[in-house]
Design a protein around this nucleic acid. Structure first.
Length: 435
RNA sequence: GCAGGGGUUCCCGAGUGGCCAAAGGGAUCAGACUGUAAAUCUGACGCGCAAGCUUCGGUGGUUCGAAUCCACCCCCCUGCACCA
């Protein structure tokens, strides 16, 4: 018999991870009194999850650690339709083979976070295409559609802006999304006795839809719970950097970049994020906050957060790689790096590229740096050059040297005959290997 | 379909014949200060090292000269009408 950690609900609440629940106190008791099966869905809208998905994904893990059985649903079917919830405009459909490929990737990704070998409450990964894929239209309309009131659906907050706003509109396809997701819940209730669905707060409408459907189709008593949308104190969108979305796939966002993202968290957000994203006990987080407050200067919270998250997503090895690069670039001196260190930085995910020595003269330095994606335009590099903000292997490059890229990458400046660490501004690094 | 309004550089938004690569704000980038923060201040912000080149929904025209004027086309919004 699995032991239930009855303090789960309280812990979630204190972490700020509960936005809304159905049933109020009943849910807390329900969770404390037995091992329950719950699910959360992830639609394949890209070939990787990003950090925005982390809150529900890690919530599944929290539930499992407390003795409940998590099901991660990958929306092979719903991903073909597109969720209109709180979206300003109709989205374009992806082809079935693309969505199928993404579904496979997400399945693999999601699987790393939950435990499949823990006996009674072992996790499962399911794909709703398995039960929706072969359903025919008439069955769907008669068995599922009949339970939904269009009047009700129109009044949902999540589609309101699409219905109310002139010129926006919503296709029947997207309008139907809610029925599909509701059907998932009903189906999981029937198949796995799944009685709780969790999701982002934008999923409230879809979750309550599923609760209603499970009751109507199977007289099932089910619950719903939403997690807060992650917001930042400065009002900008969480999870975006200047170079775009922060992905969980190391091939799309390197562990180093991932680590740096968390390290850059604003003071005003960092303790909240520690509660949201890490598994550190609340008491430990409070202690960190206390210490930071008492100490002058740089808080430790950001590096704790960065370490925890990088280890969680990319493992110890990923964390070490990220720390090696960070250490080399921001604390140590480049001179301390030996040849294998530089090779390692490349493998660790420091942005790098190879240049041919005899072609260096073909372009200006600004152009080479733009090609390496260190800056958006030559103008920016030029600006930085004028302020002495561009260095190669530690030596500042002057404005005049711009035209002579070959001199900037002169052989005598190289480390070990071929490596050049270019730095633009305070944080942008790029490793050039000239051969 | 008819009538009216509108499409400007990443976003918002000025600009109605030359002084416009185009006000102002936001975002972004760099510098100072700092903690690889925040706030603040400074600079940059179509592309180009530069000469110069390319922009204001599209095409063609008027003009020495057009984001600005004309014609046609495309798209969006508002109202009205139509819906066998």
């Amino acid at each position: 018999m699995t032991t239930i950690d009855a303090s789960l609900f309280d812990d979630l609440q204190k972490r700020g991870l509960i936005a809304q629940t159905t049933g109020g106190d009943v849910l807390a008791d329900y969770l404390a009194s037995g091992s329950r099966t719950l699910y959360s869905g992830f639609d394949p809208t890209a070939d990787s999850l990003h950090i925005g998905h982390l809150v529900p994904l890690l919530a599944l893990k929290r539930f499992q650690q407390a003795g409940h059985k998590p099901i991660a649903l990958v929306g092979g079917a719903t991903g073909l339709v597109g969720d209109p919830s709180f979206k300003a405009a109709e989205r374009k459909l992806n082809t079935p083979d693309i969505v199928a490929g993404w579904t496979d990737k997400l399945k693999a990704q999601v699987s790393r976070f939950i435990d499949f070998d823990s006996g009674e409450n072992a996790a499962e990964v399911v794909n709703n295409l398995d039960w929706v894929g072969d359903m025919n239209v008439l069955d769907f309309l008669r068995d599922v559609g009949k339970h939904f009131s269009v009047n009700n659906m129109i009044n949902k907050e999540s589609v309101k802006q699409r219905i109310d706003r002139e010129g926006a509109g919503i296709s029947f396809t997207e309008f139907t999304y809610m029925l599909l997701q509701s059907y998932d819940f009903a189906e999981l209730y029937k198949r796995h006795n799944c009685t709780l669905q969790i999701g982002g707060s934008d999923q409230w409408g879809n979750i309550t839809g599923g609760i209603d459907l499970a009751r109507r189709m199977y007289s099932g008593e089910t619950y719903g719970m939403t997690l807060p949308l992650v917001t930042k104190s400065d009002g900008t969108k969480f999870g975006k950097t200047e170079s775009g979305t922060v992905w969980l796939d190391p091939a799309k966002t390197s562990p180093y970049a991932f680590y740096q993202f968390w390290l850059a968290t604003a003071d005003a957000d960092v303790y909240k994020f520690l509660r949201y994203f890490t598994f550190l006990p609340l008491a430990d987080i409070a202690a960190i906050e206390e210490e930071d407050k008492a100490a002058q200067g740089r808080p430790q919270a950001q590096s704790v957060l960065a370490r925890e998250m990088t280890a969680l997503i990319h493992g110890e090895q990923g964390l070490q790689a990220a720390e090696r690069i960070t250490e080399a670039l921001f604390s140590g001196s480049l001179d301390q790096l030996d040849e294998s260190d530089l090779e390692q930085l490349k493998l660790d995910g420091l942005p790098s590229s190879e240049l041919a020595r005899d072609q260096l003269g073909d372009k200006t330095l600004t152009q080479w740096l733009v090609d390496a994606e260190m800056a958006a335009s030559g103008k920016q590099v030029k600006d930085a050059l004028g302020r002495g903000a561009v260095t190669i292997n530690g030596a500042a490059i002057s404005f005049e040297e711009n035209l002579d890229a070959a001199a900037c990458f002169a052989a005598e400046r190289a480390k070990f005959g071929r490596f050049y660490v270019a730095k633009l501004g305070k944080k942008k690094y790029h490793l050039f290997q000239v051969g």
